[in-house]
């Protein structure tokens, strides 16, 4: 599977252009991180990719087929989208909630069969959330909700997973769990496209990064090449140090980003070595 986005534009009815010519390519097994300041158009880009919004110009190719020529239900069998905040009003039980992911596979007049419930249960097991299946969705914690949402997306049996800031409201443990699940799914051959506010996550988890500013990609490519101190400064308008930290587990190196101001304010308590330019 390959998704190619070519010169994508989107503007709202008011004429405000939010996405201004975005191009990139992702293949099976890759995690593509979209990074950028608030309001740069990350969410809009994801909504264009999954078909909630119709791009005003440009194309999205799924294995070479123009996505807008694919019927909506077919598209939903290929692409699953997880919104940043899911607002549900009715306290559906988790299994009933997850099985809604079968919607694109079921005709309008049918209700999910045992087979569909089985697929939903499998999806819950996949993300280690099977024990939640009888709980009301609204009563789950943020981390559990995110896992259940991922399970619902998996129930669609998609090839591409689009996630809007899946970790922004989670604590450290749940971030690790969610990112771990996403890594596992990518290794199984899914394309994962996610937006994030944590540059470090992009370093740790993504195979490729798009740094978005003002509706455009400032740079696209491998994390090391895209997330330079210079580019991050341009994107976020703040001085950033890219630190290289020794991985205590295998002796390799891990990169992370910290705003310079933070380091200065802490009088550089860190005993890590860091090198200019993130090399």
């Amino acid at each position: 599977m390959e998704m190619e986005v070519k010169d994508l534009y989107f503007s709202y009815h008011t004429g405000r252009e939010v996405v201004k010519g975005v191009s990139f390519k992702v293949r099976s097994g890759e995690i593509f991180c979209v990074l950028g300041p608030n309001g740069c158009g990350k969410t809009t880009l994801l909504k264009c990719l999954c078909g909630i919004l119709k791009p005003s110009k440009g194309s999205i190719f799924l294995d070479g087929v123009e996505a807008n020529s694919i019927p909506k239900t077919e598209r939903a069998k290929t692409i699953a989208y997880l919104p940043q905040e899911h607002m549900t009003f009715l306290p559906y039980e988790v299994l009933d909630f997850v099985v809604m992911g079968r919607a694109p596979h079921l005709s309008i007049f049918s209700t999910p069969s045992d087979k569909d419930y089985e697929i939903a249960e499998e999806a819950l097991k996949e993300v280690d959330a099977y024990h939640l299946k009888d709980r009301p969705y609204v009563e789950l914690s943020g981390g559990e909700k995110q896992l259940v949402l991922i399970a619902r997306a998996l129930t669609q049996q998609p090839k591409i997973l689009l996630l809007d800031e899946p970790t922004s409201q989670l604590d450290l443990k749940n971030q690790a769990i969610v990112l771990g699940v996403l890594g596992k799914l990518a290794r199984r051959g899914l394309i994962v496209v996610m937006t994030t506010h944590f540059p470090t996550h992009a370093f740790l988890h993504s195979s490729r990064v798009g740094l978005m500013v003002n509706g455009r990609f400032l740079a696209v490519g491998e994390p090391e090449q895209v997330m330079t101190e210079e580019n991050l400064k341009k994107a976020y308008d703040v001085d950033v140090k890219v630190l290289t930290v020794k991985n205590p587990l295998n002796g390799g190196f891990i990169k992370m980003c910290i705003p310079t101001e933070v380091i200065l304010a802490r009088r550089c308590f860190c005993k890590f070595e860091y090198t200019e330019g993130g090399s």
């Binding site: 909504k47 909630i52 909506k72 077919e74 598209r75 919104p83 899911h86 607002m87 559906y92 919607a103």
Partner: peptide, 14 residues
């Protein structure tokens, strides 16, 4: 059920 999730999510579910 799917409609009650809201317009955007229902759309994303095809």
């Amino acid at each position: 059920n799917v409609l009650s999730l809201g317009e955007e999510e229902a759309k994303a579910l095809g």
